[in-house]
């Protein structure tokens, strides 16, 4: 479903060149739920932006659902859903319901299909109480649920999430995790999840990829990840070791 082959992306910053992503290759098959880990500045967001066509890679080859994102961006958009936890993709001044209506128009979703899907999302994400509230007045947790619904209204095959649980309380987090697990299990949606919350990874992901300085540092199952450092007890300690090369303090 997602294929990266020796992908690189660099940025020129005042005469210096920053290699945000370097020679990165991996494949994610349909129906997988993959955690994408890495320290701050590792290149996670950059990878995700290349997957949805926002950024054009400087080298290598990207395929998502068989399409080249930077060339077939608008076609791909119908098959992929994206959530940026740090920034809403909804319209700041419009009530949530109007934002959804705009999405229906943009994605050309059939009215009937849209209705039933929206009802279902409203129910599972509990959006009912703030449907008519302008997005800028929503709390972070409400907004995040709104963003998730917006990313799923057109029933995408792939869902890409960049820190969707950032800043949420334990209850909201649990709700979103539960929702994502069922989405993947029941509808077979492929999910790529970036997060700094290892609880998300432990509870959701069968497979984990870890990147550092724009290169893939680990790719395997959760068990294999734990096995890289057998003397560490928790996932936090294992990941700290992978990030820093030395045991957690």
């Amino acid at each position: 479903m997602i294929e990266l082959e020796r992908v690189g992306r660099s940025f020129k910053v005042k005469r210096n060149v920053v290699h945000a992503v370097h020679d990165l290759s991996f494949t994610v098959s349909a129906g997988e739920f993959v955690g994408y880990l890495g320290p701050n500045g590792a290149g996670k967001s950059t990878t995700i932006k290349m997957l949805c066509g926002i950024l054009t890679p400087t080298s290598g080859r990207v395929r998502v659902a068989g399409l080249d994102p930077s060339r077939r961006r608008t076609t791909l958009a119908r098959r992929i859903g994206v959530v940026f936890g740090q920034r809403t993709t909804l319209w700041w001044d419009l009530p949530l319901a109007d934002s959804f209506e705009l999405i229906r128009l943009l994605y050309k979703v059939e009215r009937a299909a849209f209705r039933s899907r929206l009802d279902e999302l409203t129910e599972t994400l509990d959006l009912g109480s703030f449907m008519r509230t302008p997005v800028r007045q929503l709390s972070l947790g409400q907004r995040m649920r709104g963003d998730l619904a917006a990313a799923l209204l057109h029933a995408p095959d792939v869902l890409v999430l960049d820190e969707p649980t950032i800043g949420l309380d334990v209850v909201s987090k649990a709700g979103i995790r539960d929702f994502l697990r069922r989405l993947n299990a029941e509808q077979g949606t492929t999910v790529l999840l970036t997060t700094h919350d290892l609880g998300d990874i432990e509870r959701l992901c069968r497979r984990v990829m870890l990147i550092d300085h724009g290169r893939l540092a680990f790719d395997g199952t959760l068990e294999e990840l734990m096995a890289t450092a057998p003397d560490e007890a928790t996932i936090e300690e294992v990941v700290t070791r992978l990030y820093t090369g030395s045991p957690a303090q």
Binding site: K49, C52, T74, T75, V82, T89, L106
Partner: peptide, 22 residues
């Protein structure tokens, strides 16, 4: 403002969305 990303993840050209924005 970082809001251009949002236009680029939609299935309609960014040109059209920008022109109609607000």
């Amino acid at each position: 403002a970082g809001t251009l990303d949002t236009f680029l993840i939609r299935p309609v050209s960014a040109w059209l969305q920008l022109a109609t924005d607000r």
